[in-house]
Amino acid sequence: MMKPLEKARVFLVGEGENELGSRAGAPAYQSDKHPGVLFTLLSRVQPNGWVVGGAREWKSIRKYQARGAAHEDTRHVLGAAIDAKEAGCDVLAFSRDIDRDPARREAIAEGIRRVSSSLSSPPEVIGGVAVPALEGWILALLGEKATEELSPLRAQAMLAAKGMMPGDGAALVRVAEDADLDAVPQDAASLAEWLARARAVLPRRTGRGVR
């Protein structure tokens, strides 16, 4: 008799409720009551075979560092990865708003590279910067082009013009639920890379074929 596959555990990290839904905030107060954009996107890529094993906001990752010249976001990714590992998760999924810090893209990429070289039995990482912020990804999911050219404020303003205010996580999640992930504009490279990574990692980790 075949043993049923254990569900993969995914650790989510994001800026706040928009990304994490009711998984934002301190662990003791988290719930699965309502999803955020990251959970929704991962569910679109792979609906079954995984569960959320834990979540954190970036602001709760330790920030001060006495030694080392690394960009703080490189260390943040490592901190998120060890949190994921210690929560028994196989996968770390995150997005980090690039905001106005162009060095953040490379810092995050360096952090992802270091996860596998620094930790024993590291989690697989689905992560990267959201350019210019999560709102840019939502606009791209709505079919807007050149979203990575926008400032974070401009992206927020464009969403507001479509009736989605900055704190309206539920509206952002509805976009992620309804979007055609195969129709994301090519110039939304940060979102496209993130989805490609999710498509590579999740099916493998859940023992299911690529959708």
Partner: peptide, 12 residues
């Protein structure tokens, strides 16, 4: 400790 020390400074 080994993994944690690769991520955090000791006091951190």
């Amino acid at each position: 400790f080994e993994d944690r020390a690769r991520v955090y400074a000791l006091g951190e």
